[in-house]
Write a protein that binds this DNA or RNA. Structure first.
Lengths: 336, 336
DNA sequence: TGACGGAGCTGAACCGCATTAGTGCATACT
DNA sequence: AGTATGCACTAATGCGGTTCAGCTCCGTCA
């Protein structure tokens, strides 16, 4: 900036005003300064900016998963890709970190805050009784909870959520109409907000219809767990006729396991995957799946965060309900 | 630091010396300062550190892929996870960005450099005639090329690579021993260094054995491409008896396509996937696959980068050759 | 005609740290 | 006793921006 100032024949403050669109310089001077800056290929040092109170121009994203369970999951990359689209426009950086668990995640937030590394964070995989929201509150760090429940409001935290309850109800509707009465839901990690929401909704829907053979089983999202649970439930004396898997990986593993045990899909058992991806069309039969636009989800979350950083109010935003794409893995229940 | 200085009854410089392990303070004072700092929960502001010439304590990672092709790919998350392990230890941040193509990636490097945002970068998916290495050279930005060819050396850039050639040779050995003479390699993106290396090796191996029915076809790594190429080549008058897919996703799609056309795996055609993941054990038959430790790959790359940041020399490091895990998708060629 | 005000610009302080050039004091040496 | 040496520490400076309190010049209005 000193160089620009010299070359444009003005003071450094004038350069600052000119380049930041602040009043205090004539349009004439502003143009001249801009040209010189352009010519010199000037870019503001984020460090210097951050130091003089402008914020770090960076948002944080922590993934709390042990390395091993970072398996085949298209969701996160797509989410991040959507987030990036929005952040890149505003020249905001994305600081990314993988940790083991939410406790570590809280530490990361604390550190980032103390080091002035980020202006805000994106929180994924919200849980019931999540310690992270409290920490963010305490630090006064703006954040957007992705996939959070709309009820647990924290001042300063926005929430972007998908209507899991509505989607689950739709799936049950569909299966019920096909004659299914015994349904098992192979859920994801217990304690995750959306897992619990899906489980609650399934139970409510079952009760509403007086179904007793409906159950949720939590897992760690792994293909191994999906296969194991599938084998177990199919050996019940009254096995389920429909299976709802909380991700595509488990659904695939489940179908393989069921087939191996001699159960045909969808003849003996129908399968629905919660998360549509290329995987669902890579096996026979093609899997019926709940489809949502993860990239758009990311865009929405990032947009909310930028709004928060601009001083906007915390909001709760709902993204479209996941749609059930009916393919070949769902059919009429045996005997109907 | 001012607060610490006051509370410890020393000057701010003494605090700086004490906390950075520099000489100039007594052990006594050092301890006292450390305790006060601990008590106050002090963390150095990265912005201030960066400003006073210490570097940004951050490394950059750019993924140049259009959003759509960020499909089911476990490789990158695992790689990043390994990178993180090493970086987290040293309290280095990872600035992550997704862009459309390498040109944009170069721009990102330029911007990061000008903004003093990163101290070094990790470059993935190196290409033949890659513009990025030139840009990094020009900027003097330390970098590690992940998966690069060992021959294209650039001063200041380290390279971490897997021996694709050796792995390809091993695969051909295995298939040849099983009696396969017509082999098609469904490769990844043309222009990627490792794609070209695999193609070259396959051609060389074929020539060495006098095989004429050996061919590589490049794709965009998508399941759709994998399926399409599979269908096309299986309809040749002399169809291949073995298929090598450059990733697991295409292999899966390929098996599905082949089965659909009435070709049994491995009866009519053997299949090898380049990249082992849970996917390979989620279909019947289980896929034979080349397995490598992507997490370790990431660790190695990050370690090289930290060495570079510490002022070490640029090096070329080889990670272990991918191992061929023989499962059920490979068998004797028909008629042998 | 002189007080007033605003537009356009400058100088200096400041953000939080690292670093360098001193400063004061005790100890070792001649 | 006088001087060189070393140690523990302080004061001052700079990194690259932003910001705020002036300052000057010029037009306006009573």
């Amino acid at each position: 900036m000193k160089d620009i100032a010299r070359q444009a024949g003005v003071s450094q403050s004038a350069v600052s005003f000119a380049l930041n669109g602040r009043p205090g310089v004539s349009e004439d001077t502003r143009d001249r300064v801009r040209r010189v800056a352009e010519e010199l290929g000037w870019r503001p040092s984020t460090a210097a900016r951050a130091l003089s109170g402008e914020g770090a121009a960076t948002v944080g994203f922590v993934l709390a998963r042990p390395a091993e369970t970072l398996g085949v999951d298209s969701f996160f990359l797509q989410l991040v890709s959507g987030i990036q689209e929005v952040l890149a426009e505003r020249h905001l950086g994305l600081l990314f970190q993988v940790v083991e668990d939410v406790e570590d995640e809280c530490d990361v937030y604390r550190r980032w805050w103390a080091e002035h590394r980020v202006d805000g964070v994106l929180v994924v995989d919200p849980r019931t009784d999540d310690p992270r929201t409290g920490v963010l509150d305490e630090l006064g760090l703006p954040g957007v909870v992705i996939g959070g429940a709309p009820d647990e409001r924290h001042p300063g935290l926005s929430t972007v959520w998908a209507d899991d309850a509505g989607a689950m109800a739709a799936v049950v509707d569909e299966l019920y109409a096909l004659g299914h009465r015994r349904i098992v839901h192979i859920a994801g990690l217990p304690g995750l907000a959306h897992t619990e929401r899906r489980i609650r909704t399934l139970r409510a829907e079952a009760e509403r219809r007086g179904l007793t053979g409906v159950k949720s089983v939590t897992t760690d999202y792994s293909d191994a767990a999906g296969a194991a649970v599938t084998r177990r439930v199919l050996e019940w004396s009254a096995p389920p006729t429909a299976l709802i898997y909380d991700n595509d990986v488990m659904a695939l593993a489940g179908v393989a396991a069921a087939t191996e045990l001699g159960h045909s899909v969808p003849g003996d058992v129908s399968v629905v995957a919660w998360e549509d991806s290329a995987l669902c069309r890579m096996v026979k039969p093609w899997l019926s799946a709940l489809s949502r636009d993860s990239v758009e989800f990311g865009r929405t979350a990032a947009t909310e965060l930028t709004a928060l950083l601009d001083g906007g109010p915390a909001r709760t935003v709902r993204v479209p309900v996941p749609r059930l794409i009916v393919r070949d893995s769902t059919g009429a229940a045996r005997g109907t």
